[in-house]
């Protein structure tokens, strides 16, 4: 076995996972807030935050879909060794990992059933979130602004509630989240995408 594969797991799994979960939970409970996730040193192209999330939430009980560039030999080997999650198609996934373009179309993922809306996929979206959006909903006091890969997809997702997908956005060691309950809109006055 490639020695690289063995590296990059948690140094102290119970404590590293506890810290990581707390950050991930706070992110999901407070959409639009950014938190730090570290502990994993995953192979490229995974961010530290995405690798840490995978180590914290995934195991042999969670079918995982690797999308696009994230579906490569080193990643598969790292996940097989550290996580043991079965790698599956988008349709069968409980978790999915990749950049926004590779994860599309979102209609492939499970959105839950009316009796079990929790049986829906959680998507870990890596990379840039250039579109500024205004968020409203549970976890948000009034409104909060956040960058998203696009806006329409999340507006559509919110209409599925109580079904729908839940998202983590990861970049470097940072994570933010967007559950299906969040209402997304374009900031007033914004006409096009501009760098802040």
């Amino acid at each position: 076995m490639d020695a690289e594969v063995l590296k990059g797991g948690f140094a102290d799994a119970p404590v590293d996972a506890a810290h990581a979960f707390r950050a991930a939970m706070t992110a999901m409970a407070r959409p639009g807030t950014v938190h730090t996730l570290h502990g994993a040193q995953p192979p490229a192209p995974l961010s530290v935050a995405a690798g840490t999330l995978i180590l914290t939430l995934c195991d042999p009980d969670t079918p995982l879909h690797l999308a696009g560039d994230w579906d490569r030999k080193e990643v598969r080997a790292w996940i097989a060794f550290h996580v043991g999650a079965p790698l599956v198609t988008a349709e069968a996934a409980m978790f999915a990992l990749g950049d926004w373009d590779a994860l599309a179309p979102l209609t492939r993922f499970a959105i839950g059933t009316p009796e079990y809306p929790d049986r829906s996929a959680t998507l870990i979206v890596e990379g840039a979130t250039p579109e500024r959006a205004v968020l409203r909903g549970p976890g948000i006091k009034d409104t909060v602004e956040m960058g998203l890969p696009e806006i329409a997809a999340f507006q559509l997702n919110a209409t599925l509630f109580p079904l729908g997908l839940d998202f983590f956005f990861t970049s470097g060691a940072q994570v933010a989240a967007l559950p299906r309950t969040t209402k997304v809109s374009v900031p007033s006055g914004a006409t096009s995408v501009e760098a802040a």
Partner: peptide, 10 residues
Amino acid sequence: RRAILKGLAI
């Protein structure tokens, strides 16, 4: 933890 996250999302 997975159950808690889905609980917060729904």
